[in-house]
Design a protein around this nucleic acid. Sequence first.
DNA 1: TTGAGAATGAGACTCAGTCTCATGATAATC
DNA 2: GATTATCATGAGACTGAGTCTCATTCTCAA
Lengths: 153, 153
Amino acid sequence: MSDERWVETAERALADAGRKRGGARRAVLELLGEQHCALTAPEIERALAGTAKRAVSRASVYRILDELEGLAMVQRVDTGQAMVRYERVCTQEEHHHHLVCDKCGLVMPFSDPALERAIRGLSARVPLAVAEHEIVLRGSCRQCQTAGAPTGS
Amino acid sequence: MSDERWVETAERALADAGRKRGGARRAVLELLGEQHCALTAPEIERALAGTAKRAVSRASVYRILDELEGLAMVQRVDTGQAMVRYERVCTQEEHHHHLVCDKCGLVMPFSDPALERAIRGLSARVPLAVAEHEIVLRGSCRQCQTAGAPTGS
DNA sequence: TTGAGAATGAGACTCAGTCTCATGATAATC
DNA sequence: GATTATCATGAGACTGAGTCTCATTCTCAA
């Protein structure tokens, strides 16, 4: 995905919704535009505070993420790590889920067409009008497996 | 599933692990044994405090849930509601996932063999040694659809 | 330039979950 | 039955995510 394109699209969506521009929102948009996977709100707050970028208060981070979620420009991702993560909404072919390493907390994206088909089929059979789905696979990443494994000693 | 059987099994597992018996743990086990779906720790704390059952402190609730998780008698379930839920570990054929109503917060169990097959196939193809998986479908439950829908006016 | 109203920051607040430590209960031993 | 080591428990302080309020700053249309 084009990062800049996403930032522009989001700014246009905000303008269309009658929102004025602001420096805090611009900083959050640019940060999200650079990411390849989901961030937590505290990560966003720290990333903006700790760099040359403009610092943005916690309240503003949450407010901006809520607005963007309302405009379908970001989506919430729950990886079972006690914090909600947020990421840019992707184009259809980039729809993905997450692998989470229980040992080091690493979050990686993955996608699988067969799984998506299974989910679509299932959605018709459950007593719920399904709007979204979320799949998280949990285990040990390559690095933690290597680190944890006995290495021939 | 037999509720009492699960409670007995859990107590035996605890005894086998060298644990002494205690009233708080007994109360938590009995409460979990009566449930059909996942509860949060605060729900457990409140349920035990508000009834004729023995009240159990928050620290004990978390401690007991951790122990039971370590013995594979309960499992954590993340439904994206900002709180971890816990439920009894079921026999194989009862393995299930969750439907969550975004409007009223209702959590319902569901299971689907085709989905399980898709997940097993996928687990071999990702760069993670998959230990668990979690699937949450989110949307509107029947009741909220009815309540929200215009009824012929 | 001005003013209405949106955007923002500061920080108090709520609540889930963790941690520590003093006290209570259990069960093995005598 | 008494003793005692040790586990189980409760109370409550503490941490950190997320919410809320309100005063201040900024945007932009007039």
